[in-house]
Computed example of a mutant assay.
Amino acid sequence: MSHIATSRPSTPDTIYDVLRRSPVARALAGMELGEGCAVTVWENTRDRVCYRAPAHTTFSLYLEGGTGTRRLDAGGVAGYPGAICVMPEGCGSDWEINAPFRFVHLYLSEARLRSGFARTHDCDARSLDLPEATFIRNPDLAAPLARLAAAGADGDVLHAETALAELFGALRRKPGSTHTTRAGTTQAGPLRAGLAPHILRRVDDWIDAHLDQTITLDDLAALADLSGYHFHRMFRLSRGIAPHAWVTWKRVARARILLRTDQPIAGIAAACGFSSQSHLTRVFHRHTGWTPAGYRVAVGGGRAVGAPTSESPS
Rank of each mutant, 00 (worst) to 15 (best):
E96N: 11
E166D: 15
A125S: 09
R147T: 04
R173P: 06
P144G: 03
T178I: 13
G169D: 10
Q187W: 10
L130P: 02
A99H: 09
A111V: 14
D140Y: 07
P131Q: 08
F103A: 12
F135M: 04
A151D: 00
D124T: 09
D124I: 08
P100N: 09
F117R: 05
G92I: 04
E161C: 08
T120C: 14
D124C: 10
Y107Q: 13
P144A: 01
R102P: 07
S127G: 09
R112F: 01
C91I: 15
P100I: 09
L113S: 01
L130K: 07
G90S: 12
A151N: 00
S127P: 03
L113W: 02
S127A: 15
C123H: 10
F103S: 12
A125D: 04
S115M: 11
F117E: 06
R173K: 14
R182A: 11
N138D: 12
E132Q: 10
R182E: 07
A165S: 14
T162D: 11
A111N: 12
R119Q: 15
T178K: 13
S177A: 15
L145T: 02
L164A: 05
L167C: 02
I136T: 11
D140T: 13
A142V: 04
T181H: 07
P100A: 12
S93W: 04
A163D: 03
A149D: 00
L141K: 02
I97N: 05
G169V: 12
N138Q: 11
R173I: 08
F168A: 05
F117V: 10
T180V: 14
E161R: 09
H179G: 11
A143I: 03
S93N: 05
F117I: 13
E89L: 13
A150K: 01
H105R: 07
R173Y: 06
A183E: 13
P175V: 09
L158M: 13
N98T: 15
L164Y: 02
V104N: 05
G90K: 12
R147G: 02
A143T: 05
A150Q: 03
T185Y: 06
A151E: 00
E89S: 15
D122R: 15
R114Y: 05
D156P: 00
P131A: 04
G155C: 03
A150T: 05
A99R: 14
E96F: 07
R119Y: 13
T181Q: 13
G92A: 08
A149N: 03
G155I: 02
P88L: 14
F135L: 04
G176N: 02
V104C: 09
T185A: 10
G152R: 00
C123P: 06
S177P: 04
G169C: 10
I136G: 07
L113E: 01
S93Q: 06
D156T: 01
A165V: 10
E89I: 10
L113R: 03
E166A: 12
A125Q: 04
A160Q: 03
A143D: 09
F168K: 06
S93M: 05
D94Y: 08
A99F: 09
L171F: 02
A142T: 03
F103Y: 13
A151R: 00
A133Q: 11
L171M: 10
